[in-house]
Design a protein around this nucleic acid. Sequence first.
DNA 1: ATACTTAGGTATCAAAATGATACTAATGGA
DNA 2: TCCATTAGTATCATTTTGATACCTAAGTAT
Lengths: 110, 110
Amino acid sequence: MNDGSDLNLCPAPLVFAMIGGKWKLSILQILIFQGTKRFGELRHGIPDITQTMLTKQLRALEGDGLVDRKVYAEVPPKVEYSATDVAIGLMPAFKAMHSWWEAKARPSTN
Amino acid sequence: MNDGSDLNLCPAPLVFAMIGGKWKLSILQILIFQGTKRFGELRHGIPDITQTMLTKQLRALEGDGLVDRKVYAEVPPKVEYSATDVAIGLMPAFKAMHSWWEAKARPSTN
DNA sequence: ATACTTAGGTATCAAAATGATACTAATGGA
DNA sequence: TCCATTAGTATCATTTTGATACCTAAGTAT
């Protein structure tokens, strides 16, 4: 019902649907901070994800305009994934989460 | 195996396990920005969550030290939830996500 | 006294999401 | 000829999540 034109209120549910879930943040983090990756590289970079889930989440991210998918007509197959500009805009959010974790993990270090 | 002492690498999976999932960000957002809430208020504030899930996620957040739970010995029951200091440290991350969404939603407004 | 309301749950079962495993396609190399 | 390769799909088991009903015990109306 809300088309996004009145965003005085924080649209948390929309945001969280887009980047929430179990794997999306991990996928985005890699693509945002490490750049373009092939399917297999992503799989390797996220140890516990299954092929099925990686494919599914990548498609969802692609559908939301956060990830670009480039297929090469080669054999064996080669598919590259990269963060879109929109996704790269999330970098500050990732950095904030990182800082939070560090502050939490070592509250009295240094 | 990693106790948190070597966090040069971004501990994304750990962070995302703690605040990821489908509802945790929504719950935290409310408690962080709106302060202490009763169970029923949270339920009302997150339209699609079920009682079962709200209870479960609150318990998980409590277990991770992000939420405090205060039970009053009254009838009918009264239980208040609030964000811990650790959770409040996530405020910048939420703000970053909010900014991102706004920039994304109206790329050419003003 | 009896029955209804209340708020924060729990128990139970169905539905959906996720995980594990096996399978496919097209080419190059042994 | 047969195998390895990469990205992905198909199928089925397991785990999560959702829907619904039920519980507790005090206040309130009858």
